[in-house]
Write a protein that binds this DNA or RNA. Structure first.
Lengths: 154, 154
DNA sequence: CGCAATTTGTTGAGCTTTCAATTAGATAGG
DNA sequence: CCTATCTAATTGAAAGCTCAACAAATTGCG
């Protein structure tokens, strides 16, 4: 007894799917082209840059960026090779690792940020009315509220 | 002279980012687990199932699924291995290839669809009011209208 | 205390995606 | 007709992601 999507729902779902995919791939491509990093890596640098000491536990960083631990491990390994992040032992928990934004990482972020923000403006904010932006925020937060609770940590 | 995002914009952008990512990874995981295919492949089967003859040119299929030609080539190769799609020569253009949904492909799609639709309902439609769904459709279509025109075909 | 259960983070394999290069066929202008 | 240009689709390599398995440290509880 599946309740299928009616034509209206179908249209909504497909528009959302296509729009979010198009937006993401566009921003990802721009960032890769202009700054040599995918959007996921940019986000890691951003989160680190915002906290005191530019340092976060791996698990907190995974949480903040909405990525799995595994993905984050691989990503930080890559960022470490680039010299943008370094790892340190966690003083309070010997299992823990701290990811620390380096000088070079901050520089790379500073270089990438203006272009990226411009892209976000151009492709998102400039296309919607202030009212729509409020609606989008409320919609997104409702979805998040539902999805966040049980996110796998693998 | 970068115009940075103000706190409100920041909140909107991050909520949207987190929500669309969480929704996608959730649906992708569900589909992979229950039906053994990623969401992108499911979409290919859906598009093929909807057209007369269950057949589309590779380029049309790429367009319909919003994927690059390269990605589609790889994906169809994979789907062919699974026996869910087969390729045929295009009669009117010798460069062309037709992707055709097989019986087995239709069966796999039919098996996957109910669970997937339920997921979409649960994680998207059930979380938003009718008004919000209309808003989301309009927002998505506005974004699409802007992004669609120049999508790379590489 | 002592041991089971949980948490943290990593690893490697396999799969998907991207990018740039390439082949082959169609098309338009002179 | 013939050549330059464009379009269709594929390819391989490099990169990123997912999943399951794992090691090490911590926690909770009898």
């Amino acid at each position: 007894m599946t309740r299928w999507l009616d034509p209206d729902e179908q249209r909504t779902w497909r528009a959302f799917l296509a729009a979010s995919r198009a937006l993401m791939t566009t921003l990802d491509r721009e960032l890769q082209h202009d700054a040599g990093m995918p959007h996921a890596y940019y986000e890691i640098l951003v989160r680190l840059s915002e906290v005191p000491g530019q340092t976060l536990r791996m698990s907190e960083l995974a949480e903040a960026t909405g990525s799995s631990r595994s993905r984050l491990s691989h990503a930080v390994a890559r960022l470490e090779e680039s010299g943008w992040v370094r790892r340190e032992e966690c003083p309070t928990d010997r299992r823990g690792q701290l990811a620390v934004l380096t000088e070079a990482g901050l520089a790379a972020l500073s270089a990438a940020a203006p272009g990226h923000v411009q892209g976000v403006r151009q492709h998102l904010f400039d296309q919607l009315s202030p009212v729509q932006l409020t609606q989008l925020r409320e919609i997104s937060e409702a979805l998040l509220h539902h999805l966040e609770p049980d996110r796998p940590t693998s």
